[in-house]
């Protein structure tokens, strides 16, 4: 079904309305929960008999679950909006109306999509799934159409670089990805074998709850150099402390005396596990990480 700009806008409007309702609902549920907690505390202090306390607790747990469900429903709506926008973008591109977008705006979009990447909020005890933060994809995972990936592609100068790209399709028979360079100025399509494509995280990890899903300090990683669309080798210098913070990484840079540039901020979405390439660049990596 073709998704026109108008219908996409309409669908988004509908979801925004839903979200608004959810927000109101969350608000009233939260107020109810607060009073519930207060009554629970009172009940505990007044040494209510255990069975009664138990039923009270069960009721409150139910309420809390409802509240959680409402919040998750709102988040799901946000997710839907992302999908609609993505779908619309892909369709527009397939229809051939490529909008000329200036580099500055492109960079802004790259930044923005990292900032608005969904945050993983697990249930108690649930561990961060694959493609959340630093957790890699399963080996048989295939990135979906429209997902962003790092792709080892040859540029005009025949030099291989890890570039930021978008999946156009996965060619099952050849086990290859068809990807398109994010940077429209390059406008190159690349068909690359699966090992030359690394899916980017689909969710952010919350450092306060899922610290294990982040790269530890001094890990050698590949990170998107700020204001470019290329991934370069870097060392994790500082981890994000909150869900909205970014990593600070040290990029290799021979123009600096110690071989590394000043620490630069890179969003979780654009920090991925280092993968050595055949070329010499990768060979020394092991030593560096221990340095």
């Amino acid at each position: 079904m073709p998704l026109t700009a108008e219908s996409a806008a309409q669908q988004i409007q509908d979801r925004l309305k839903d979200i608004q309702q959810h927000i109101h609902k969350v608000d009233s549920e939260r107020r109810r929960a607060e009073s519930s907690i207060a009554s629970l505390v009172r009940a505990q202090q007044s040494q209510t008999p255990n069975p009664k306390l138990k039923t009270l607790l069960q009721a409150k747990i139910l309420e809390a679950t409802q509240e959680e469900a409402t919040i998750r429903a709102a988040l799901a709506k946000i997710h839907e909006i992302r999908n609609i926008r993505n779908e619309r973008r892909i369709q527009a591109r397939n229809a051939g109306n490529k909008e000329a977008i200036r580099r500055g705006a492109l960079m802004k979009m790259v930044q923005l999509s990292a900032q608005t990447l969904p945050l993983f909020v697990g249930k108690p005890g649930e561990r961060a799934p694959a493609l959340c933060g630093a957790i890699p994809a399963e080996s048989n995972y295939v990135a979906k159409v429209g997902d962003n990936v790092a792709a080892l592609a040859k540029g005009i100068d025949e030099e291989e670089n890890w570039i930021l790209a978008e999946v156009v399709q996965f060619l099952h028979r050849q086990n290859k990805y068809d990807v398109i360079d994010i940077d429209e100025e390059q406008k190159d399509r690349h068909v690359l074998s699966k090992r030359k494509v690394i899916p980017l995280p689909l969710m952010r990890a919350n450092p306060e709850t899922d610290g294990h899903a982040l790269f530890p300090k001094d890990t050698v990683v590949m990170a998107l150099y700020p204001q470019t669309t290329c991934f370069y080798k870097a060392i994790v210098h500082r981890l994000p402390q909150t869900a909205t913070e970014e990593y600070e990484v040290l990029f290799e840079d021979s123009s600096y005396l110690n071989g590394y540039a000043e620490p630069l901020p890179v969003a979780q979405r654009y920090v991925i596990a280092y993968r050595p390439t055949k070329k010499g660049a990768g060979s020394g990596s092991g030593n560096l990480s221990s340095a």
Binding site: A5, A8, A9, I12, Q13, R85, R88, R89, E99, I101, R102, G104, A105, K108, M109, L112
Partner: peptide, 15 residues
């Protein structure tokens, strides 16, 4: 309305 779909292409020096 277009902004809902795509971020506006603001001029080079606006930000």
């Amino acid at each position: 309305k277009a902004e809902i779909l795509f971020p506006v292409n603001v001029s080079r020096d606006e930000n």
